[in-house]
Design a protein around this nucleic acid. Structure first.
Length: 501
RNA sequence: GGCGCUAUCGUCUAAGGGUUAGGACGGAGCCCUCUCAAGGCUCAAAUACGGGUUCGAAUCCCGUUAGCGCUACCA
């Protein structure tokens, strides 16, 4: 029986800054595809651009991936990361048999391959200066020709000991076809690339060389990447061919778009994964949402909420869409709310505690525990909890007394409600939400008032706010003594003179 | 300019020749209700355009248009 080779995918971010939300989707798809087929997803650090390298970026990339719940099967070890990023504190290393998984630690291999390519006539050394290249481009633009390297050094035999780059020879008049797993077959009648650089003058490879060599060496079977790579795919195919290596399956993913229809980028605001974390989004919701941009479960499936495992079960490349998709904050928020509502109470409480503490709220565990069930369906993101629970953790609250005086309510009546309410609440044994409600309703009845306006007086007296979690549960969460205290305070304020209407 | 990719409600998408073109977000309305939510029900909202092929086209083909991407010793 024939055995399918193990499916191996890879996510290869460049450590040029923080992990972008678009990168999260690519990483997610890599993992979904590999794990759907019982294979492995690798993490590889593409740090070949020494100029754009940002110190600390590798460590933050790895931390972000871990936080969002994207775990790779192979990737840089602790030692490899530490060597590439001095800010790395350790503990997130992955390791694996195909390492190192950091490209700056594989330069010998790229050099070896580029020498082989030169020796076999597929590449050549070039010592053209940037100025010369720039001039060439200018002249081409003026003549309205396609721009690109002229091939000046093709036959010049530039010596190996002089500063140079290595360029790949693009064969003239060669048509090429890419059987893309998501786009279908893409055909180029002629290749517009003009002898692209493989090895830079600093000895580091360009993306093209490094990715082809590593994908081969690491036995990558499926390359998923953003479709901005499509135009250079012929080069990669040619490289595999020249090296007599079998090319992996390519799948070019549709772009994630900003609301202006352009590729999502920094210009669109908070697009780093870390900004979503700070904004109180749950990792599970982020992954679920990103999976749905460019992929869908298909016929017969009208659900939209999927756990990571469910996504892994369902994900196949033939369900990946061709057209780009806009990133909708509205839908992400809705989905995040769905996830918050599905959290076990203890879990929500735990996440809220961490978040509120970080936001500077002096959390009291008992109060938080009492209020959590009642704010769960009132949140889309974690920060939504702050205005809802703040009143519990403050010594002094501000009150908009004028807001009490609606629908026939006047100062005297409001003051009476606070006074009698304080007495009633103080007398409650046991002190619980049901008892508080009964007391409030009874008071309204005794005073011959509709319950709504009476509740409003209570609400503002106790919480200071017009919008709160359910009243009686809020009073219960605050506690008997503090609630009585706040009712009395309010009565005093109302007695002190007419409030600003 | 050249090369390539893409095109279904405002947005994410389903429907791979025959459906009243389905779902979700967002919007509107109603119900529930102590505020605000959540939840339930209902409504509005789409096949870019033009040609073919076919008994029949959102679906296949060709053009047009529009959007996007690439055109570096960046990835």
């Amino acid at each position: 029986m024939e055995r399918m080779p193990e499916v191996r995918t890879r996510f290869a971010p460049s450590p040029t800054g923080l992990l972008h939300i678009g990168g999260v989707r690519t990483a997610l798809f890599e993992i979904l595809l590999a794990h759907h087929h019982g294979g492995k997803a690798l993490l590889r650090i593409d740090d070949t651009d020494r100029e754009r390298l940002v110190p600390g970026a590798i460590a933050s990339l790895i931390e972000d991936l871990r936080w969002v719940g994207l775990h790779f099967d192979e990737g840089p070890s602790d030692e490899e990361i530490a060597k590439a990023d001095e800010t790395y504190k350790g503990g997130s290393g992955i390791g694996g048999p195909a390492g190192p998984y950091v490209q700056s630690q594989r330069v010998g291999r790229y050099k070896e391959i580029s020498e082989e390519l030169i020796a076999r006539g597929f590449a050549y050394r070039c010592d053209c200066t940037p100025e010369r290249l720039e001039k060439e481009r200018q002249e081409q633009t003026e003549r309205q020709e396609p721009v690109g390297y002229s091939g000046y050094c093709r036959n010049r035999d530039v010596p190996a000991d002089a500063p140079h780059v290595v360029r790949f020879i693009i064969p003239a008049g060669r048509a090429i076809e890419l059987p893309d797993a998501v786009k279908g077959t893409v055909r180029w009648e002629k290749i517009m690339l003009r002898d692209p650089v493989l090895l830079k003058s600093d000895g580091f490879p360009t993306y093209h060389l490094a990715t082809v060599v590593d994908d081969h060496d690491m036995r990558i079977t499926h390359v998923l990447r953003a479709d901005e790579w499509l135009p250079t795919a012929p080069l990669h195919l040619l490289l595999f061919e020249a090296l007599r290596w079998e090319a992996p399956v390519f799948g070019h993913l549709p772009p994630v778009l900003g609301t202006d229809g352009k590729k999502l980028s920094k210009r669109h605001g908070a697009t780093f994964l870390s900004s979503f974390r700070e904004a109180g989004y749950l990792p599970e919701a982020i992954l679920n949402f990103m999976a749905l941009i460019g992929w869908s479960a298909g016929e017969g499936e009208e659900r939209e909420i999927f756990s990571l495992d469910e996504l892994k079960q369902r994900f196949t490349l033939d369900r990946v869409n061709n057209a780009g998709g806009m990133f909708s904050y509205d839908k992400l928020k809705w989905m995040n709310g769905m996830y918050i509502r599905s959290l076990a109470l203890e879990e929500l409480e735990r996440r809220l505690r961490v978040f509120l503490l970080a936001a500077g709220v002096a959390v009291d565990d008992e109060k938080l525990k009492r209020i959590t069930p009642h704010i769960q369906q009132r949140m889309e993101v974690l920060p939504d909890a702050v205005p809802l629970v703040e009143f519990l953790f403050k010594d002094k609250i501000e009150r908009d007394l004028g807001a009490m005086l609606k629908k026939g309510m006047d100062v005297a009546k409001a003051r009476e409600i606070c006074l009698r309410g304080a007495e009633a609440v103080a007398a409650l044994t046991p002190f619980d939400a049901a008892g508080i409600e009964a007391a409030c309703r009874k008071l309204a009845e005794e005073m011959g008032l509709a319950s709504g306006p009476v509740f409003t007086v209570f609400r503002i007296a106790v919480t200071g706010q017009k919008v709160t979690p359910p009243l009686f549960e809020s009073i219960y969460a605050l506690g008997q003594a503090e609630s009585v205290q706040r009712l009395r305070e309010t009565a005093d304020l109302l007695g002190a003179g007419a409030p600003a209407a």
